[in-house]
């Protein structure tokens, strides 16, 4: 096993991990705010990828240009989902909450399959195509651009949550809903904002992912599973936790695939979840 190969695996693992992290942070944020696990999270990633694809195929918009558009579309979708479905599920028993978002996932996936067939699609020669050579390591340029934008998105999210009044209100709602409401924070609007941000992040991730990944109706399933692992690992509700856990998962996956059989790389990550949940149920950075 050459050193170059391992270095290569580490770098591609980190870059992929940043995408996982951005998918996971939305999930984490929503759970932290209202204790609802969005089981349709992967399906929203899939929708973002298809939106990017059609904007490219029909209007010739490059994914990097349509990025804000896709993010905005998903954010609006998040607000719709919150007011249309989630608001009614908040007071329902947990089984109904799980089934509600699960049912949404089933319907969205089947709908995508019905509309766009189960075919695999790709966006050929996006603006970021090409590759970068750093010494002995080759990095795909789409992955590199995606990783950098993910990092930037994380920085922006972190600044928003910790440095602005709205972000602080969001945190307050997550910590104690009633106390926040007493202080005059419109919690209902904060929840909708949480959904908008959460799905907006998924929109960015999906848009970036579509520059170097296949686009098909079932694409979200595996990403959602990995996002669950990341959120459990990082602790529900923690932004930095999601980032660290996402990168950790990307690394585990690429190094595990290199050292062991590649077809078992997901198994290693799932094992990671079970290990963490059983040993440290609140995650590495969990607040509760």
């Amino acid at each position: 096993m050459s050193r170059d190969l391992i270095l290569q695996a580490i770098i591609s693992g980190i870059l992929m991990g940043l995408i996982y992290a951005l998918v996971a942070v939305g999930l984490s944020l929503i759970f932290g705010l209202m204790e609802i696990v969005n089981f349709a999270h992967g399906e929203f990633l899939m929708l973002a990828m298809f939106a990017t694809f059609w904007l490219w195929a029909v209007f010739g918009l490059d994914p990097l240009i349509s990025l804000p558009l896709v993010a905005a579309m998903l954010a609006c979708g998040g607000i719709l989902v919150h007011f249309g479905i989630i608001r009614r599920l908040l007071s329902a028993p947990m089984l109904a909450q799980v089934c509600g978002t699960f049912g949404l996932a089933v319907a969205l996936r089947a709908g995508a399959q019905f509309l766009w067939t189960p075919d695999f699609r790709t966006i050929t020669s996006p603006m970021s195509a090409g590759r970068v050579e750093i010494g002995p390591v080759f990095i795909g340029q789409p992955q590199l651009v995606a990783g950098l934008i993910c990092l930037f998105a994380f920085a922006a999210l972190w600044a928003f949550i910790t440095r602005t009044d709205t972000g602080l209100a969001l945190q307050a709602t997550a910590q104690d809903r009633q106390a926040a409401a007493v202080m005059g924070i419109p919690t209902e609007r904060m929840w909708a904002l949480g959904w908008a941000i959460g799905l907006g992040c998924v929109g960015i991730a999906g848009c970036l992912l579509s520059t170097f990944y296949y686009i098909f109706p079932e694409v979200g399933v595996n990403f959602a599973l990995l996002a669950f692992v990341a959120v459990a690992l990082g602790g529900f509700g923690s932004i930095i936790g999601s980032l660290v856990a996402g990168v950790l998962i990307g690394l585990t996956e690429s190094l595990g695939g290199l050292l062991l059989d590649p077809s078992y790389k997901t198994l290693i990550v799932f094992g990671l979840y079970l290990g963490v949940v059983i040993v440290r149920p609140m995650g590495l950075f969990g607040r509760f």
């Binding site: 479905i85 028993p93 509600g100 699960f102 049912g103 089933v106 089947a110 019905f114």
Partner: peptide
């Protein structure tokens, strides 16, 4: 095959919302 899944999904969301 997928139409029935769409109906299942929507049905279950409605049941969860209105009659859990």
């Amino acid at each position: 095959r997928t139409v029935d899944l769409i109906i299942y999904g929507v049905l279950i969301v409605l049941v969860c919302m209105w009659r859990p």
